[in-house]
């Protein structure tokens, strides 16, 4: 069996890898490898087995105080229980959407929820402009107000095919089909090789993969 460890540390929010593997595109070994990554991220500032917002920011930007609208939205979506931290199960289930084998439908839905800043069930023009401004701020790219307005309006009108002033899920799906690069960042090829990144853990895994 190759079991070097008789017991696995059971930290707060830890979930059975076999259950997580059954619910996601990951194998049991991959979930175990993700636990190694999770442990690293969740102990970078506060060693409590939970990823806090600052730890997430630190991992993404090497800066715990880096404010970024999109990273905040990702954190909020990963934090399914909305209790201000990401637990292991939430981490694995959310990352599952970014797996190359996850369904395009799930990726499109996740991106929609990400951009629906105020969670109204629609992406509104004001939200789109807010996101463009946030991106410009982050990239230090300078565009005139007129150019920003033109980009936002043109995009919005193209996506809002029924012309009701907001982008719904179906309009978003059609827009992504037209511009597939929009969900490119919803796929992390790296997740297919996650066990290669953390081989030390795989050697000590308790559960053998069924597939």
């Amino acid at each position: 069996m190759g079991c070097y460890h008789s017991k696995k540390p059971k930290t707060q929010g830890y979930e059975d890898p076999t259950v997580l593997a059954a619910e996601t595109p990951f194998t049991v070994s991959e979930v175990e490898a993700l636990y190694e990554l999770f442990k690293k991220l969740s102990s970078s500032i506060i060693n409590d087995g939970l990823i806090h917002r600052e730890e997430f920011q630190l991992a993404l930007f090497r800066n715990r105080n880096m404010k970024n609208l999109f990273a905040d939205r990702i954190f909020d979506l990963f934090d399914v229980k909305r209790n201000g931290v990401i637990e292991f199960g939430e981490f694995v289930r959310s990352l599952g959407i970014f797996h190359p084998n996850a369904s395009i439908k799930d990726k499109i839905t996740f991106a929609f929820r990400l951009y629906d800043l105020r969670q109204t069930g629609f992406i509104e023009q004001e939200e789109l402009k807010e996101m463009v401004l946030a991106l410009l701020h982050e990239s230090e790219l300078t565009l005139s107000d007129d150019v920003i307005e033109t980009i936002v309006e043109k995009t919005f009108n193209e996506a809002d095919t029924n012309g009701d002033g907001k982008i719904d899920q179906e309009e978003w799906r059609e827009f992504v089909m037209k511009y597939p690069s929009l969900i490119k960042n919803m796929t992390l090829p790296y997740l297919k090789d996650i066990t290669m990144a953390f081989p030390s853990f795989v050697a000590s895994t308790e559960v053998e993969d069924s597939d």
Partner: peptide
């Protein structure tokens, strides 16, 4: 592509905050 010719969603999808690959960097 120039930012001016991109649609708004293409532009925002370039955010570093959406690039989770950095989570896996050692």
């Amino acid at each position: 592509a120039s930012p001016v010719t991109m649609n708004a969603f293409e532009l925002i999808s370039k955010s570093r905050g959406l690039d989770l690959a950095t989570l896996f960097e050692k």
